[in-house]
Design a protein around this nucleic acid. Structure first.
Length: 557
RNA sequence: UGCCGGGUCGUCUAAUGGUAGGACAACGCCCUUUGGAGGCGUCUGCGGAGGUUCGAAUCCUCCCUCGGCAGCCA
């Protein structure tokens, strides 16, 4: 636990801004942030960065944090997304207490404020259609043309706007626009649209409305109504800030400060909701929570912990420069976390049978194994050992490269927690494939006895044949084969065909038969795994590989 | 040809006129009954050119370069 000080330590440029505001008493000591997702998809790790940033600020400065759904577009939003977002935000540990809000609950208020703007002569109803508005907006280098409806009387605007609301017009027939400056070098200020007509049922408001506010009009109002002090968003809204400020200034309302930071980009994946939706809809992945997805739900199912996600977002920092973060930083965070909390177990992914020829036929020994060498309080367990065991196929090589420390013909290796064995004979099938090993063991080399005079380079994991439990294991690789798939319009062609490998004949030690859904376990020498929540049928266990162990072994030439 | 915002090790990020540092990655070595973990070490960076200054990543000028913006999406 850290000692909280009046002025939290400087973490990034946003903390500096807030520090200054506190110094100058700009907000009378208040710090109030929010996370404002649109419920049009599942949250991803980029959202986690924003959530931890906003929630972290509220914690560090003893302020408040709101969860607010920016549900202003009924054609894209669904209740399923609202539910998943609430679950994910809670799972991340961002405590919004009772402060969960919906922009749609402010629609009446927003409507009244729009009327107010019309009365000030700062907004007008425009009859131009979409094409006409676009063509009259001008270009990046040329000013736009003023709408012929720009100078309607206040009375006419009031009347028309009211009739827009009551459903007298068809979709797209009219809009309400702010009257700002069609020649502004900032295109967002060229009489932006505040309301559009959409005859569509809203997931929370039903058929109450057929006009819906646009982001630019709505967002500042939402922040203002909730008395947000620091409205933190991503860089692409930088050009919208003058408009955010314009609306709030004209209305003379509480005026939060918008601050932009660079969104998270991770290599070898995509982060836009549109692309993630396409992966789901077109069945390139199983669902939003597919363990290969960068979604919060996907990462959770994959075995990531919220603590690791938080640690990751803190380690990458917050700044204004566009960045492409290497996935290895994320992997470091999860390994670091799981190393401390995951119980160890023996699991053989691709079994190779060994018969220990000098071990008694019917004998079963119980060997003691530590559950976590990092944490003695996690205790010990018992492993059965017998004449027939399985080891990893990759732990035996007939013609090993230099530096190979595992089993080779005539070579010796230690079986973790058990004995040192020697490989006497490799049995092959008709195609020359090694299918079984005959080995002998040295009785005085039992782990923990200290009676062994032998030294071996390698220690390998194993499971006892008769007690092992058969499970399914899913190994995941990066979803895309290139670092930045989003930069290519043929991004789907870079999907990794080997992003998941399903192994049905893996064998694990018997203690794992009691493993619970979501439990994190390290398969020694293999990686961190997590009991899957979806694929398991009946008694069958399915393990997702969260991440491999760091592997410093490189065959020398 | 417009406006806005950026450019510091391979990656991410500090330094706020005073020794360019950390983390990840990589590579060595040590240790190890997980080729895990841990320990030690090495490597590599201020986009460029001028200027101000005793002193510049930091201030000024110019250049180069990258990103965003022309939805009735957010």
């Amino acid at each position: 636990m850290e000692i909280s000080s009046a002025s939290p330590k400087k973490k990034n440029f946003i903390y500096e801004i807030i520090d200054d505001d506190l110094q100058t008493n700009k907000w009378k000591g208040d710090v109030h942030t929010r996370f404002p997702p649109e419920p049009n998809g599942y949250l991803h790790i980029g959202h986690a960065k924003s959530i931890f940033l906003n929630y972290g600020i509220s914690e560090d400065f003893h302020g408040k944090f709101n969860l607010r759904f920016d549900d202003t577009n009924p054609s894209k939003e669904e209740q399923e997304y609202v539910d998943s977002i609430i679950e994910d935000v809670k799972w991340l540990g961002a405590d919004f207490e009772k402060r969960i809000f919906f922009a749609s609950d402010y629609f009446d208020q927003m409507y009244q404020l729009a009327v107010e703007l019309i009365k000030k002569g700062k907004a007008y109803v425009c009859d131009l259609n979409g094409d006409e508005i676009r063509s009259s907006r001008g270009t990046l280098t040329e000013p736009g043309k003023e709408s012929p409806f720009r100078n309607r009387s206040i009375e006419e605007n009031l009347n028309l706007f009211q009739r827009m609301r009551t459903g007298e017009f068809r979709d797209g027939e009219k809009t309400l626009r702010a009257k700002i400056d069609m020649a502004s070098p900032n295109i967002n200020l060229r009489d932006p649209i505040m309301y559009r007509i959409v005859h569509e049922e809203h997931q929370r408001q039903g058929k109450k409305w057929c006009i819906y506010p646009t982001y630019d009009w709505a967002h500042g109002l939402e922040d203002s109504i909730e008395k947000i002090t620091h409205s933190i968003c991503t860089l692409e809204f930088e050009n919208h800030r003058p408009l955010y400020d314009w609306f709030l200034n004209e209305l003379g309302m509480h005026h939060p400060q918008q601050i932009e930071f660079a969104r998270l980009n991770l290599n070898y994946t995509v982060m836009s909701k549109r692309k993630l939706l396409q992966l789901v809809k077109d069945n390139y992945v199983d669902d939003w929570d597919d363990p290969r997805m960068p979604t919060i739900s996907g990462l959770r199912r994959r075995g990531y912990t919220s603590e690791a996600l938080k640690d990751f977002t803190e380690s990458i920092g917050v700044a204004k420069r566009d960045a492409m973060t290497d996935i290895s930083l994320l992997e470091f965070s999860i390994r670091n976390d799981l190393n401390k909390r995951a119980q160890r177990a023996m699991a053989v992914l691709r079994p190779l049978k060994i018969v220990i020829t000098n071990y008694p036929e019917d004998q079963v020994e119980e060997l003691e194994a530590v559950n976590n060498p990092e944490d003695a309080s996690m205790g010990k367990r018992v492993l059965p050992f017998s004449r027939e065991i399985f080891i990893e196929q990759t732990d035996f090589m007939e013609n090993p490269p230099k530096g190979f420390h595992r089993l080779i013909p005539g070579g010796e290796v230690r079986l973790r927690y058990a004995y040192i064995i020697r490989c006497d004979e490799a049995i092959k099938n008709e195609t020359g494939e090694v299918v079984e090993l005959y080995c002998s063991f040295y009785p005085d080399t039992k782990s923990g006895t200290g009676t062994s005079t032998k030294k071996v380079k390698g220690t390998i994991h194993w499971v006892s044949a008769s007690q092992a439990v058969s499970v399914e294991v899913r190994l995941y690789e990066r979803l895309f084969t290139i670092e930045n798939p989003a930069s290519d319009e043929n991004w789907l062609s870079f999907l990794n065909p080997n992003s998941v490998e399903i192994i049905t004949g893996a064998l694990v030690e018997p203690s794992l038969s009691k493993a619970k859904i979501g439990e994190h376990i390290q398969f020694e020498r293999n990686g961190y795994f997590c009991v899957d929540s979806k694929y398991a049928i009946n008694e069958r266990l399915v393990f997702n590989r969260t991440v491999t162990l760091k592997d410093s072994w490189r065959p020398k030439k």
